[in-house]
Design a protein around this nucleic acid. Structure first.
Lengths: 203, 203
DNA sequence: TCCTTATTGACCGTAACGGTTAATGCAAGT
DNA sequence: ACTTGCATTAACCGTTACGGTCAATAAGGA
């Protein structure tokens, strides 16, 4: 990894990183070509290899960057500083929307990276991830105030269901190539309001 | 397309088709290699090309087969012969589970094929699909009895949300390489019961 | 002008691709 | 045992794509 990369204008850094996120989110590690990343970011392949010594290094940088940016966004939105489940959910998802404005394909990349099977990558990733994800689920269930929920539903099922839906929703957006943060933000809010009504309001 | 393919033992046909569904569901059309399909199904690449004259033909056969099999399964489960939304949903999803027993990756293939961008493929697919999908959504909303639902929720949002969740659920199963029809069937039923309770029962 | 740095076109060796073909194996019929 | 006919494949072909390198060029500042 060449330090000169960080001395580039920020916008150019973003262009390169986003091209990489895009290509790696659309293909498996093995079938994601460096040349495609270079083309997509408007620089030559040689220059890309000038900044990142090889493919794996670029990939691992993206992975670390994704974790770090996500963590930062979650913190900025004070995601964990509430005991209202739906408020927390909203902050969590809106923080990801804000991230999406700078890095449209980071979310899709993260979703895919965790299941990457290429042996060179696999190990380094999974270790790193289990910490983050498992921990966050536990924190949620420790912190939230559950007395507001309908008494007749299984909270774990609700939790799973909501995250299935979020992933399914994002999947559709990515597949149809429709990453418009403003629109997604609105639709996400509609969904959250819907969930809140359904899961708390006792008609 | 060589007629001899259909004279093969059914199990061998399935092995080939499933290998193809798998490889095409994991990669974009362009990056899905025929050699990988051959290896996965335990036959030589030459033989694969003996049955299917070229890659596109194989892909289009898979697509047509997916549509036909899905239609058949939906019919067998009498999916549309009820006006209860959740019963219809259950039949629809269980029919897909049964399909999954014979063709584990057909679902993932269909999900991806619709958004395939390779120009040779794109056109032939989309035409064919709009009929099926749009029509089915309309049929559902015409047929179902809506008086049982909670009055305070937006049915379209509910409908979308459910299908996001199903896709997200299946995505996770595929990504983690966990296609176990029995298990999926059970979990799907849990989800449907959950939805039914939440969306109809006025606590 | 010169020097330094940013950037690239062209290149390398290798591997993978879609698709073909000539040669095998192999079973049934004589 | 020999032949016929089909199922199956190893080996091959021409082309493209890949990760990665390097010498050459462009750009910018002193």
């Amino acid at each position: 990894m060449n330090d000169k990369f960080f001395k580039l204008p920020l916008e150019k850094q973003r262009r390169i990183i986003n091209a990489a996120y895009k290509v790696f989110s659309e293909n498996s590690y093995k079938k994601a070509p460096m040349s495609e990343i270079a083309d997509e970011s408007g620089i030559s392949k040689a220059l890309l290899f000038h900044y990142f010594t090889n493919k794996k290094e670029l990939y691992m940088y993206l992975w670390m960057n994704a974790i770090e940016m996500t963590r930062k966004a979650v913190t900025e939105y004070k995601t964990l500083e509430t005991d209202d489940f739906f408020e927390m959910l909203k902050r969590s998802l809106l923080s990801k929307c804000s991230l999406m404005r700078d890095y449209p394909h980071l979310y899709a990349f993260s979703l895919r990276a965790y299941y990457e099977t290429a042996p060179e990558i696999h190990k380094s990733i999974q270790e790193n991830f289990n910490d983050v994800s498992k921990a966050s689920e536990m924190i949620v269930f420790e912190k939230i105030e559950i007395s507001n929920f309908r008494k007749d539903i299984e909270l774990k099922t609700m939790y799973d269901e909501i995250f299935y839906a979020v992933d399914g929703y994002m999947l559709k957006k990515y597949r149809s190539n429709c990453i418009i943060p403003d629109e997604i933000e609105k639709e996400i809010i509609v969904l959250i309001d819907f969930w809140k009504k359904v899961y708390t309001q006792e008609v």
